[in-house]
Design a protein around this nucleic acid. Structure first.
Length: 459
DNA sequence: TGTTCATGG
DNA sequence: TATCCATGAACA
């Protein structure tokens, strides 16, 4: 990737940035190697047991028979051949190159119970890979993840050896096993500070859409709840109601974000149904998540509103999409068109932070790169100021890493409140003063871990 | 070396 | 015209 800063300020951001990141690399993160060794043994045992069970199954015996006894259960190519060529099952989806997919979603869709064991084995193996990485990379009980600024075409960072930016978090078992290996220095505690929806905030600096700016400025408004109301045709979203929370999540992760990144109604309808547990095929009453306390489900509700088939739901989402881009966020849509036109004319686009993206881009790249890069630059600028402040004030606390929109610190408890207050000032006050094109308030979330607690022990 | 899969934002 | 950006392992 070619770094192309077009201003002294852009150059300086990365120059100071890589120095600050190198301080975090030098500090490193403590690894409990006894724990790593114990967990690896436990994982090995679980994988061995599952593999033995899998090899007892009729499915495996058939596989073994047709492959002349040379089955490699780690080979997706062999599994694909067996499932889709030999057993003639129909793949739920295809890969990029048009072959039958063997990812978790596709295997689950085949509804073959034995394959669930295979999925579990793969998951345990993946977990083990993280632990092996820590064992391989640790020096005197500390890992020193690299943070790179020269590898990503959007001008984000990346991390490697080991990668600190993709440590499991969503799956509780994987999260506990992997993050449970990593500790702060003795007597210290982890603190993570992350920007709330930074990409949405930064998108406002580019498109200046008045409706979206209102959403970001007004704490009582909630874009995702409003979309949930429109998508599911309900009057009100009460976030404290667990069912409503799922509907809001469906709207956020199945419609709003996919639309921002360039997806369209056909795929959005599918994702939303995944969240709401509605089938893509035939619809009847009594399907999907339950609304309220009765056995009244989301399908009952939608059918009562006239959406009595999946196809009708898809058309409904098409209308929601049309309204989303032509009415609700019309100024955002206009900006995307203008931005794409500029790229087609000049062959490049310039970020508000002074970096230039060029090379082959499609429209989605053109409208997403500047937002992704600039959002990270907000984190990087804050990281640099925090690093300077901690060093100038001879603090015992230090920055140890960064995950795109969050800073990770190893903090001495006596300094905790002062450090957190300073970082809140840097991120939410100093940063918008430094870059005056930031046109909505910025907010952060703070996660405080116990003293001497691992990265798995979030409160 | 390219593809596919899994993990994160 | 159909979700953006990464790293890393394993296989063919």
């Amino acid at each position: 990737m070619l770094l192309n800063p077009k201003s002294e300020e852009a150059y300086n951001l990365f120059h100071e940035g890589i120095l600050a990141l190198s301080h975090a690399e030098e500090a490193g993160i403590r690894v409990d190697m006894d724990y790593v060794n114990r967990q690896c043994k436990i994982l090995d045992r679980k994988m061995k047991d599952l593999e033995a069970e899998f090899k007892e199954s009729r499915l495996f015996k058939h596989w073994e028979h047709v492959s002349k006894g040379k089955v490699n259960i780690n080979s997706d190519a062999q599994l694909r051949h067996f499932l889709y060529d030999i057993k003639k099952l129909t793949p739920a989806k295809l890969t990029e190159s048009g072959l039958g997919s063997t990812d978790e979603e596709s295997l689950v869709a085949l509804d073959v119970p034995e394959l669930l064991k295979l999925i579990d084995i793969k998951k345990l193996k993946k977990t083990r890979d993280y632990l092996e990485g820590y064992a391989r990379e640790q020096v005197d009980g500390y890992i020193h993840p690299n943070f790179n600024l020269h590898l990503v075409k959007t001008y984000r960072s990346s991390s490697s050896n080991p990668n600190l930016q993709n440590v499991p978090k969503r799956d509780d078992d994987q999260m506990k096993t992997c993050r449970g290996a990593l500790y702060p220095r003795p007597g210290h505690q982890f603190v993570e500070i992350d920007f709330k929806s930074i990409e949405v905030s930064i998108s406002c600096a580019y498109h200046k859409d008045s409706t979206m700016i209102r959403y970001m400025k007004n704490k009582d408004s909630d874009m995702h709840a409003d979309m949930a109301k429109q998508i599911f045709i309900i009057d009100k979203i009460d976030k404290s109601n667990p069912t409503h929370a799922i509907l809001r999540q469906s709207a956020k992760n199945g419609f709003v974000f996919p639309e921002f990144y360039g997806d369209y109604y056909v795929d959005c309808a599918k994702i939303i149904c995944g969240w709401a547990k509605l089938p893509i095929g035939k619809w009847t009453t009594g399907m999907g998540i339950e609304l309220d306390t009765s056995a009244f489900t989301i399908s009952d509700h939608l059918i009562a509103k006239g959406i009595n088939s999946y196809k009708k739901f898809e058309s409904h989402i098409e209308e929601v999409e049309d309204d989303f881009w032509s009415s609700r966020f019309g100024e955002y849509a206009d900006w995307r068109k203008r931005w794409w036109t500029v790229y087609q004319k000049y062959g490049y686009i310039d970020l508000l932070t002074g970096f230039r993206c060029s090379g082959v881009m499609d429209m989605k790249n053109c409208v997403n790169y500047p937002i992704q890069g600039t959002s990270f630059h907000c984190l990087l600028w804050s990281f640099i100021q925090t690093d300077k402040w901690l060093r100038e004030n001879k603090m015992r606390s230090r920055l140890i890493g960064q995950v795109h929109d969050s800073m990770i610190l190893d903090i001495h408890p006596d300094e905790r409140e002062m450090v957190i207050a300073k970082i809140k000032d840097i991120t939410c006050v100093e940063l918008p003063q430094h870059w005056q094109w930031i046109n909505v308030p910025l907010e952060v979330d703070t996660d405080i871990y116990p003293v001497d607690g691992s990265w798995a022990e979030k409160n």
